[in-house]
Amino acid sequence: MRAIFLILVAAATLAIVSTVFGGGYAINIAIVVCIYVILASSLDIVMGWTGLFSFAHAAFLGIGAYTAAILGRDFGTTFWLNLPLGMIVAGLFGFLLGLPLLRAQGHFLAIMTIAFQTIVYLVLSQWTDFTGGQYGIEVEPVAGFTTLSSYFYLVLVIAVICLIAIRFLTQSRLGDALQAIRDDETLARTIGMNTKAVKLVALAISSAFAGGAGVLLAYHIRGVTPDDYTVLASASIVAMVVLGGRGRFWGPVLGAVLLTALPEMLSILTDYKHIFYGGVLILVTMFAPQGLAGKFSRWRAR
């Protein structure tokens, strides 16, 4: 319960800071932060809790976004239908990818997710008739939430719901099962756990959340273009989880906030922000391998 209270406090702080102290620009960043918090936390379901390194999270983000855009274009469906459908389609793809993925071993698994990510990107950018190719597809704003600040509150509420859901999930029996697999898969199998089914469910849920984040992103930018869904985007989501700390509830949240907001604060140094970003990733993995949340809890334990 303490975690849920903290989530609400954090959300309220974000809302106050961005609407009272900042204008549209701060709200804009706050929206992107919320979307990436969902992404990083959902990736952590498979990465932190089951130890699967996935470089395909931006692909699921894209699948969700394009599902919403294509449904809106071809059937005129609204946000309230597109959001669950985007999650379902992304979750389905996650499940389908999981079937061959979970048979692969070790590093092959990471390579397979990269291959999947690249294929999704190339399909989005090249299947012009269906996805609009490089032109992308326009998305109308959500009715009733057309202003930036009202849309921000919508995204914030959805992000809070997602975080609470993820919190419950990781604290549930499924979470225990995932942790058992991460710690010792052979042992988990020996005690009669269907480890593959558990992992498959985790991957599908994680992808579904990413798809939901994609729907939110599509309505935020009011359109979809393939360049938001590259392997680089996937890698930066992985970086958020690692920077914040794997397998800790607050780790990915912290990582997403830092890595989304940091480049914005750095834009005074427009010319050097990527150099700085790359340097930070190296230094964090060298000096805080368990992520910042890990560092923090160790410091508190002391």
């Binding site: 900042g22 204008g23 549209g24 620009y25 701060a26 804009n28 960043i29 992107v32 992308g136 992103l217 930018i221 359109g223 273009t225 360049d227 938001d228 914005e264 834009s267 427009t270 010319d271 922000k273």
Partner: peptide
């Protein structure tokens, strides 16, 4: 004020909001 949009739509939208708002 110069912003780097990296040729990416999301970054571009953020950059324009920043230029105008901040």
């Amino acid at each position: 004020f110069i912003e780097d949009d990296e040729g990416n739509p999301t970054k571009g939208v953020t950059a324009v909001r920043k230029l105008i708002e901040q």
